[in-house]
């Protein structure tokens, strides 16, 4: 589904991603871990199409398409969804209106008819129930004044509404209380099918108890320096990053 080859990207001449290789297939869950500032959010932003970052080399293909040629909205229409580490506040536009616009635009791009309001509301209610979201929240302005946890839950709510092929969850767990973590993880699991895939970026093994990854990657200084199965996360939890980063630093020095 997603193939990243030798991806190099940076900002203002400062290289952040220094040659990323990653392959994600339908049905898989990949976890990306790594120290602060290693490039995890940059990688997700580059996949989602943030123009601020300059791609200096390498390729990203998604379902056979050259992703790097597409605008962010086109990537979304093709099924990519990024749950932001820091969701943005959009004053003046309600959650329901935002989601409606977003779904309408996606359907338009896919050549589908606009979803009748009635069906849209029904779908919203279902997904809200799935994520234990209170009703009044639909009429609030997008992320405005939301608590950290509420913002994250709102991200997953949008993901549930948009039903992406590839969801990238950038530290969706940080800011969530223990119950919310379980609810959100449960939601993510329920939305899984054999056709979609998830990349989970996290610092904590705890989330991976709920969303069990098929692969765990360690990102350090713009490179994936180690990949393994779910046991790698446990090992990292126990030993920290030092034992692998030191070795990598020597190699790339």
């Amino acid at each position: 589904m997603l193939q990243i080859k030798e991806l190099k990207a940076g900002i203002e001449g400062n290289q952040i991603l220094k040659g990323i290789n990653l392959e994600v297939n339908a049905g898989e869950i990949h976890a990306i871990m790594g120290p602060n500032g290693s490039g995890k959010s940059t990688l997700s932003a580059v996949i989602a199409g943030k123009e601020e970052y300059e791609v200096e080399g390498g390729t990203i293909s998604f379902d056979g398409k050259n992703l790097l040629e597409l605008d962010p909205e086109e990537r979304a229409h093709n099924g990519i969804f990024l749950s932001f580490q820091y969701p943005v506040e959009i004053p003046g536009i309600s959650v329901s209106n935002f989601i409606k616009t977003s779904i309408t635009e996606k359907r338009k791009a896919q050549g589908l008819q606009t979803l009748p309001t009635k069906d849209l509301l029904k779908m919203m209610r279902e997904k809200m129930e799935l994520l234990s979201i209170k009703k009044g929240y639909l009429s609030r302005n997008m992320n405005e004044g939301f608590s950290g946890g509420e913002k994250k839950r709102n991200e997953i709510f949008q993901m549930a509404m948009l039903e992406p092929k590839l969801a990238i969850l950038d530290e969706t767990d940080s800011g969530l209380d223990i119950d919310a973590l379980r609810i959100v993880a449960n939601g993510v699991n329920k939305l899984r099918t054999g056709d979609n895939a998830t990349i989970v970026i996290t610092h904590y093994q705890r989330l991976l108890d709920y969303i069990v990854p098929d692969f765990v990657h360690v990102l350090h200084n713009g490179r994936i320096i180690k990949s393994g199965g779910k046991e790698l996360a446990l090992e990292l939890e126990e030993k920290g990053y030092d034992w692998i980063t030191k070795e990598a630093d020597k190699k790339w020095a």
């Binding site: 199409g49 605008d71 536009i93 977003s102």
Partner: peptide, 19 residues
Amino acid sequence: DALFYMRSRGIGIEEAKAV
């Protein structure tokens, strides 16, 4: 940041600007 956020949700740039 807000523009990118909206575009990443499938909202075209013109619509995003309008919103």
